[in-house]
């Protein structure tokens, strides 16, 4: 006998109704299942019912007035295959490409990555640097929240009871880059990673770091050092030195504090150099 019953609601309302039940533990939500099935296998969660999102109409990708909206259940591989994503959000493409393997990305989703909120998520740092918003739908309707407010700690998010991630919105195309360090290039988790993006409308940088507990974070002071365009060498050096010096860095079984401290500056330097700002050439 299956330890859980799999439900496949046809509509969003049905899915939310399933989640409102009083089960303890609560019904689990399944998108690609690449995180959830391991959690169930390892006994971290033991839901009696699992609500599959596969029939919901959320495998979407739309560019509207320069903004990108991605439905939560679109596979990461489909997102990666969109030529406009690679061209307009190169850092997002690099971050997606860094997740697992091709076969994993055929099932894994952006909604699942946010729902898991792993400290070592490769997507959360880039979504932070792109000022992405999460669109949630629940019994009370639809609401939007910045990724920074949505992600709290490992497996902890701002998702309310019976709420689902419907999609993610990225407000504008941004020159951007994502650089990571890990033991094995594929199917391994980043020990530390840096996302950098330049906003053409605000004329400012955003920098985020991921790969370590408790969660990926934005580094506003570091970003400020980079100034309003392609930074000159002293500005770039000062930003990288500040990152190595000031960022609160945790140690865990995957990397020591010292290792991460050395790498954060190096990866930031590489990320910034990889960003091309239109009309300014390479920094």
């Amino acid at each position: 006998m299956s330890p859980f019953e799999l439900l496949t609601p046809e509509t969003v309302d049905e899915a939310i109704a399933e989640l409102r039940s009083a089960d303890d533990p609560r019904p689990a939500v399944l998108a690609g299942g690449t995180d959830l099935l391991l959690d169930i296998e390892d006994g971290r969660t033991a839901p009696a019912r699992v609500v599959s999102l596969r029939r919901l109409p959320w495998r979407t990708l739309d560019w509207v007035g320069g903004a990108l909206s991605v439905g939560s259940t679109l596979s990461l591989r489909s997102l990666e295959a969109d030529p406009a994503v690679r061209e307009r959000l190169p850092g997002l493409w690099e971050a997606i490409h860094a997740v697992g393997s091709v076969a994993l990305r055929h099932r894994a989703t952006l909604g699942g990555n946010l729902g898991r909120a792993a400290p070592a998520s490769d997507l959360v740092p880039m979504l932070l640097a792109l000022d992405a918003e999460v669109e949630l739908v629940g019994p009370g309707g639809v609401r939007r929240t910045p990724v920074d407010a949505f992600v709290r700690a490992s497996r902890r998010t701002a998702l309310g009871p019976a709420e689902l991630i419907r999609g993610i919105r990225i407000p504008e195309a941004r020159p951007s880059a994502y650089r990571w360090q890990r033991v094995r290039p594929a199917n391994d988790i980043s020990q530390i990673a840096v996302a950098a993006a330049f906003s053409p409308s605000r004329r400012s940088w955003s920098v985020a770091v991921g790969g370590m507990p408790p969660r990926p974070i934005l580094l506003p002071e570091v970003a400020r050092d980079l100034g309003p365009g392609a930074p000159n060498e002293p500005a770039r050096r000062s930003a990288c030195a500040r990152a190595s010096r000031e960022v609160a860095i945790a140690a865990d079984q995957r990397a020591s504090e010292e290792y991460r401290r050395r790498l954060i500056g190096t990866l930031l330097d590489r990320a910034i150099r990889a960003v091309t700002i239109a009309g300014e050439g390479r920094p």
């Binding site: 799999l6 496949t8 399944l30 299942g33 690449t34 099935l37 391991l38 599959s52 596969r54 591989r77 393997s101 091709v102 076969a103 994993l104 055929h106 099932r107 199917n187």
Partner: peptide
């Protein structure tokens, strides 16, 4: 990757995929 199969032509890890899905 030893368990890779194609599902509708797309490579898929069969160990992390529910058959019902």
């Amino acid at each position: 990757g030893a368990c890779t199969v194609l599902v509708d032509g797309a490579s898929t890890l069969s160990c992390l995929t529910l058959t019902r899905e």
